[in-house]
């Protein structure tokens, strides 16, 4: 007996990232990468020797840095973006267990729209960006504070940018390992199967909302 050939798998897609969220992510990402590239030139002796043009590189770095929080703040006009921020902000007891667990990916600990690692990355990145902006302003406006504070700001800027750079490297590393997650930042949707495996509690929640509205889970 042969089974009838499977129909072309038209898998149900769940809406994961709204358009405003994707735009905030994209713009922040581009600005962050430009900041990192220019920072590398300003900071690393060999790259500085290679590229030169220090004043130009510096201006690009400073203005991309000042622009970095703009999309993050402008996104707040969008309800879907605010909702995602709320989810990233809230840590449940499950999240702490997930962070401590060695088998966190086996699905036994319920994972919502964002797992605890993503929440942690979001908070650390936001905090680092805030510190980089604050210290950047102190460094840029030389008349703002005393010399000693500016030295402190420079040191903080250096170390926080190193930390932020590591977060970005980690973030890109995780993204490259999961093409579906990466694609969802472009298209906004994920296959239901992926949602079940990676963010089971969120998939349930979406289904419940759909059935609560009288729609049938497709």
């Amino acid at each position: 007996m042969t089974r009838p050939a499977d129909p072309a798998p038209v898998e149900a897609e769940l809406a994961r990232f709204s358009r405003p969220v994707r735009w905030v992510h994209g713009l922040t990402g581009v600005l962050m990468l430009v900041c990192i590239a220019t920072a590398a030139v300003l900071y690393n002796g060999s790259l500085q020797v290679l590229v030169g043009h220090r004043p130009v590189v510096e201006q690009v770095h400073v203005w991309c840095g000042f622009a970095l929080p703009v999309p993050l703040v402008a996104g707040l006009v969008s309800g879907s973006y605010r909702a995602d921020l709320r989810r990233l902000d809230r840590f449940t007891p499950h999240d702490w267990r997930w962070l401590r667990s060695r088998s966190r990916r086996d699905g036994r600990i319920p994972v919502g729209k964002f797992n605890a690692g993503q929440k942690l990355n979001g908070a650390l990145s936001a905090g680092a960006i805030a510190v980089l902006l604050l210290t950047g302003v102190v460094m840029y406006d030389t008349g703002l504070t005393s010399d000693a504070w500016r030295t402190g700001a420079t040191l903080m800027h250096d170390w926080f940018s190193l930390a932020a750079g590591l977060l970005v490297v980690g973030h890109i590393g995780f993204a490259l390992r999961d093409p579906i997650a990466m694609r969802s930042m472009r298209t906004g949707t994920v296959p239901r199967r992926w949602a079940r495996a990676e963010h089971g509690a969120w998939a349930d929640e979406v289904d419940r909302t759909a059935s609560g509205r009288g729609g049938s889970p497709r």
Binding site: D89, R90, T92, P110, G127, A130, V131, L134, M156, F160
Partner: peptide
Amino acid sequence: PDPLGGAPVGRRIVLGLLGLG
């Protein structure tokens, strides 16, 4: 988990880092 439950840890981390900076 209630999607909106839990402690606002993210906010605390951001404020903590700002304080550290």
